[in-house]
């Protein structure tokens, strides 16, 4: 199924006259990359939407699909995973586009008294009327007390297709290590000017797939509500975005079946002209 999908995507890319060099480069990097964990939801929006990125555009969305490019902007997020003060998570995201190309930079830091993890991500994407594609290089640094500091380099790849009210996207995360490769897919339908709905699938190798359903609703010009349900593990996420100006305030909360809630806050600034 995946190979069939891949062949169709490659055919699609060539038909759009995208240089094969991009794909070749991407494939070359796979052999150098290493394993990586499941993607953390590193912003308030992702926390509210269980990682569904087409519901509301923010710079941090490229974390899940390197082909995604939002308006130029900067976003910073902070929260405690599972409401545990021992697990603070902070991140910074920067998105900038030039003509049909997009650049995304991200750094995130998860601190624990016994283990600290830092991630750096650089994404490049190209955008067309019908589709966007992109790839990302991720550098992961882990410091466990009493052990040597470890680091890994991985690659993500993504594709987004636009068709009227429908937006679809696929991304392959951690391509370097088949045991940890994660397949992410999302389909978004614009129900009206105010609302849209997304259905997503996330599948890590050797694990059951996780289904996701999310919605966005513009309650007011300055207020947007986000909500989601994730199946396996079962989670409900809710969030809101206050957007009085270019400066936006985001809040997202996600439930967990056994652990406490994860609250996340983000602040973003739109740099587009």
């Amino acid at each position: 199924m995946i190979s069939l999908l891949g062949s169709r995507l490659i055919y699609f890319l060539f038909r759009r006259r995208i240089k094969a060099a991009l794909i070749v480069l991407l494939l070359l990097y796979i052999s150098f990359a290493h394993a990586y964990d499941l993607p953390l939801q590193v912003s308030a929006n992702q926390n509210a939407t269980a990682g569904l990125i087409f519901l509301y555009s923010t710079p941090s969305n490229s974390h899940y699909n390197p082909a995604f490019i939002s308006n130029d902007g900067i976003e910073s997020s902070f929260g405690y995973l599972f409401n545990l003060t021992e697990l603070p998570l902070a991140s910074l995201h920067l998105a900038k586009s030039y003509r049909n190309y997009g650049l995304f930079l991200e750094t995130s830091h998860l601190a624990h008294p016994y283990s600290k993890e830092t991630d750096l991500q650089l994404s490049l994407s190209r955008h067309g009327k019908l589709f966007s594609s992109g790839f990302a290089l991720k550098y992961h640094l882990q410091n466990i007390v009493g052990e040597e500091t470890g680091s890994r380099l991985t690659i993500d790849w993504g594709l987004i297709i636009y068709h009227g009210r429908i937006v679809g996207g696929v991304s392959l995360l951690n391509l370097s290590h088949s045991a940890f490769t994660t397949y992410v897919g999302e389909l978004n339908y614009q129900l009206s000017e105010k609302s849209s709905i997304s259905i997503g699938l996330e599948k890590e190798s050797d694990f059951n797939p996780s289904l996701k359903l999310g919605t966005h609703y513009s309650l007011h010009d300055n207020l947007t509500l986000l909500s989601s349900y994730q199946l396996n593990p079962d989670r409900i996420g809710v969030g809101l975005v206050l957007q009085p100006s270019r400066l936006k305030l985001h809040y997202g909360v996600q439930t967990h079946q056994y652990l406490s809630l994860t609250h996340m806050f983000s602040i973003s600034y739109d740099l587009s002209s």
Partner: peptide
């Protein structure tokens, strides 16, 4: 609960 007539949600 929120939403339009054709698309309503409740939490």
């Amino acid at each position: 609960s929120w939403g339009e007539r054709k698309f309503q949600q409740i939490l």
